[in-house]
Computed example of a mutant assay.
Amino acid sequence: MLDDAVPGSARTVSLIRIDPVAETDDLVQFMTSSTFPFHGTAAPTPADVRQALAEGRYQSPELDSFWVVDGCAARVGFLRLEDVQDETPMFDLRIAQQHRGRGLGAAALRAATRQVFETLPQAIRFEGTTRVDNLAMRRTFLACGWVKEAHYRRAWPVGDGRHVDAVAYAVLREDWVSGTRTPVTWEDPPEVPTHR
């Protein structure tokens, strides 16, 4: 279990590993009791969650899932680490609707970063991607020392045939250890003449 303080308060969040078999009903309840407007399925149904459980999308050799628990022992969120055997794990973070706007996302991201770099020795970087209009998550990345690395134009489907831009952020292990930020070099090589 890892704890991380919420900035400006004495509250903490902990990550507690989920047992998807024993906690099936709890996962169904959590996932269906809030809407998650910036995720692929904004309002999962109980059938969606049970199918994901049956397909191993909560626990597998490549996935690890946790409850985000606040200092009062309430489950305030869900965190799934993805690609945990790779050098660049990713994540899915969901804070319950009634707990949003209180800094718990930042505390959860800090705890997730610690979890990755303290328990996955092969991880050299930790990455997350979100929609361009998810300003709360983008601010959370920056507040936690992450750096924007990519902007994907019209890469995130939002339904009815529309797509919005997606943005990717990451933190390097050495930056996390040293408390620094290595900026991205954005300069392109000189333009190559094109022939049409």
Rank of each mutant, 00 (worst) to 15 (best):
Y58C: 04
M31V: 00
P37C: 03
A96V: 01
D83L: 10
Q122K: 06
F78P: 01
F91A: 06
A10W: 06
R125Q: 15
A74I: 02
R138A: 09
G105K: 05
T113A: 14
S65A: 14
P61C: 11
G71Q: 11
L53A: 05
A111N: 09
F117N: 10
D83K: 13
L93F: 12
C72D: 13
M90K: 07
H99V: 01
V116R: 07
A54S: 15
I16P: 02
D70T: 01
G8R: 10
G71R: 00
R11N: 14
L120N: 01
R50I: 04
D70S: 09
R125G: 12
G40F: 10
T45L: 05
T45F: 13
A107K: 09
E23V: 05
V21R: 10
G71E: 03
Q115M: 13
A52R: 15
S33I: 00
L120I: 11
E62F: 06
D64K: 07
L15G: 04
T45C: 08
A43L: 06
Q97Y: 11
Q115P: 02
P61H: 08
V21I: 14
T35H: 13
Q98R: 15
D25C: 03
T113E: 12
T12A: 13
F38A: 11
D48K: 08
F126Y: 12
T45S: 15
E23S: 14
A73G: 03
Q115S: 06
V13M: 05
T12D: 09
R100I: 03
